[in-house]
Simulated scan of single mutants.
Amino acid sequence: MTTRLRFCLVLLPMFAGCKYLPHTDYFVAPANEPNPAWIRVVNFTQHAAIYQTENGVKTGGVVRTGPLPFTHTQDIGMPKAGQDLTWDYYESTIRPGLETTVYMTWEGSRTRTCFVTTQFTPEAGRYYQFLLTSGSSGKCTLSPTLIERDKEGTGWHLVRNENVTYKNAGPTAETFYTNSQFENPDYQPPPELYPGTDVR
């Protein structure tokens, strides 16, 4: 085999195989939406995703689009409804009238995780919030709420959003291990097999 042929065989995957490189889809807020709905996801935003479906086409993806993976908060001025929100939440506009999926995941040590997926159809001008609790107790729970004005019109409060459905059993999910070997507390893999993961 000639050197030139070897060189071409090495370059071929670089030009023809881009589809095999890692790819992440991100949620992008709608541009020029005249009357959007608003959404906030609270906690574990590094694993949260939003998708919207129009005419059978699903778009969206993970919400953490900052230049650094440590960017935990995006605040666009949604009402806080008396909550002490200072870190790890994501706010955005979304298109109303479209089936919308919110996927949230908690990840603990030793590949332990749980997730909840919910669907709803947002209405224009309304504020939606999805908060996920920690799974450290063995379960995680998603709380879907609406953010509404007080009757006096001076403040905001949270109201449970009943107009959601769940892909699985409901708002609460049991934790599980993505690698069942970790169920054994004595299992200690080489750390280089799980870079960035707490395997203690």
Rank of each mutant, 00 (worst) to 15 (best):
T2S: 15
T2E: 07
R4Y: 00
L5D: 10
R6D: 00
F7Y: 07
L11Y: 01
L12I: 03
L12A: 09
P13N: 00
P13E: 00
P13T: 02
F15S: 13
F15N: 02
A16M: 12
Y20K: 10
P22S: 11
P22T: 10
H23S: 11
H23V: 04
D25I: 05
A29I: 04
E33L: 04
P34A: 04
P36W: 06
W38E: 08
I39V: 15
I39A: 13
R40G: 05
N43L: 07
T45A: 04
Q46P: 04
Q46T: 14
H47L: 13
I50N: 09
Q52V: 15
G56N: 07
V57N: 08
V62K: 07
V63F: 08
R64T: 15
T65L: 00
T65N: 11
P67S: 10
P69D: 08
P69S: 01
P69G: 04
F70N: 12
H72E: 08
T73P: 08
Q74H: 09
I76Y: 01
A81F: 06
A81G: 09
L85E: 02
T86K: 07
T86D: 12
T86V: 11
T86G: 15
T86P: 03
W87K: 01
D88S: 09
E91T: 02
E91G: 06
E91D: 10
T93A: 12
I94H: 12
P96C: 13
L98I: 10
L98A: 09
L98Q: 15
L98S: 11
T100E: 14
V102Y: 10
Y103F: 15
T105I: 10
W106C: 03
W106R: 03
E107P: 03
E107N: 12
S109M: 09
T111I: 01
T111L: 11
T113Y: 01
T113N: 03
F115V: 00
V116M: 05
T117P: 14
Q119G: 13
F120G: 08
F120P: 12
T121N: 11
A124N: 08
A124M: 11
Y127D: 09
Y127H: 15
Q129N: 09
F130A: 01
T133H: 00
S134W: 00
S136F: 04
K139A: 06
T141H: 11
T141Y: 06
S143Y: 15
S143V: 13
P144D: 12
P144K: 13
T145I: 01
L146N: 07
R149T: 09
D150F: 00
G153N: 05
G155T: 03
H157M: 05
L158R: 14
V159Q: 13
R160V: 14
R160K: 15
N161Q: 04
V164P: 05
V164E: 05
V164L: 01
Y166K: 02
Y166G: 03
G170V: 07
G170T: 05
G170K: 03
P171H: 11
P171K: 12
E174G: 01
E174C: 05
Y177N: 10
T178Q: 12
S180T: 15
S180C: 01
Q181F: 11
Q181W: 13
D186V: 09
Q188R: 15
E192D: 14
G196H: 01
T197D: 06
T197K: 10
D198I: 09
R200D: 13
R200P: 10
